[in-house]
Simulated scan of single mutants.
Amino acid sequence: MLRINLRPWREQQRSAALRRLRFQVVGGVFVGLCVVLVMDQLARQRAQQQAVANSSRQVAIERLDAQLAELESARQTLESVRDQTDALAALHADRALMTPLFAGLERSLPEGVQVDELKLEGARLHITGVAVSGTVLAQFMRDFGLSGVVLDLELKWMKSLPAGDKFLLLARTSAARS
């Protein structure tokens, strides 16, 4: 019988299998490294594109903020002009009310009555002053009530002082402020 020694053949088969395994491991590592490098390159490109998009959006936002600031300034200017217009309209309306009020007050103010304060709150008129006597104050109230400028003239209080009688008169104006 012939004896065949298979040991060298098995050694060759093992070394060939080992070489294939090493080649596959090195090839797998190389392919994995290539995949990682490609993925890294794609991620960097995506990040760069995102940075460019973000910077263009930031420029657009800054431009819109500048426009918004201009609009806010214009709105504040418009609000200021509206306030001034309203104030002028109120002054114009008050002029129509105050002229007859002061004219009626001047016509009916007798000698011996001094008006210290004249306050108009809405349609209510408050007159504070000093009269030398109650009769002079009564004459003033009668004449001022007949002037047609005020309605429901009433004496709220009167205090006697050494200089005269201090008083507070309340009335409604015949034409209310608008």
Results as ranks from 00 to 15, higher is better:
29 V>A: 13
29 V>W: 08
31 V>T: 11
31 V>P: 01
33 L>T: 11
34 C>M: 14
36 V>Q: 11
36 V>F: 09
37 L>Q: 14
37 L>T: 12
37 L>W: 14
37 L>F: 14
38 V>F: 05
39 M>C: 12
39 M>T: 12
40 D>L: 14
41 Q>N: 14
41 Q>C: 13
41 Q>I: 10
42 L>M: 10
43 A>Y: 11
44 R>C: 12
44 R>Q: 14
44 R>H: 12
45 Q>A: 14
46 R>L: 15
47 A>S: 14
47 A>L: 15
47 A>W: 08
48 Q>H: 15
49 Q>L: 13
51 A>Q: 12
53 A>I: 02
53 A>T: 09
53 A>D: 07
54 N>D: 15
54 N>H: 13
56 S>E: 12
60 A>S: 11
60 A>L: 06
61 I>M: 04
61 I>E: 04
62 E>L: 12
62 E>C: 04
63 R>C: 00
64 L>Q: 15
65 D>K: 00
66 A>H: 08
67 Q>F: 00
69 A>N: 11
70 E>N: 13
71 L>D: 12
72 E>L: 09
72 E>C: 01
72 E>H: 05
72 E>S: 09
73 S>D: 12
73 S>N: 10
74 A>C: 05
75 R>H: 08
75 R>E: 05
76 Q>G: 05
76 Q>H: 03
77 T>F: 03
78 L>I: 02
78 L>P: 00
78 L>G: 03
78 L>E: 04
79 E>H: 09
80 S>P: 00
80 S>T: 10
82 R>A: 03
84 Q>D: 11
84 Q>M: 12
85 T>I: 04
89 A>I: 02
89 A>L: 10
91 L>D: 08
91 L>T: 09
91 L>G: 10
91 L>C: 08
92 H>D: 13
95 R>V: 08
95 R>F: 13
95 R>Q: 10
95 R>P: 00
97 L>H: 01
97 L>T: 06
99 T>M: 09
100 P>N: 01
100 P>R: 00
101 L>G: 02
102 F>I: 06
104 G>T: 01
104 G>M: 05
105 L>F: 03
105 L>V: 02
105 L>I: 02
105 L>H: 03
106 E>L: 09
106 E>F: 08
107 R>C: 09
109 L>D: 09
109 L>E: 07
109 L>R: 11
111 E>G: 06
111 E>N: 11
111 E>I: 07
112 G>Q: 04
112 G>F: 05
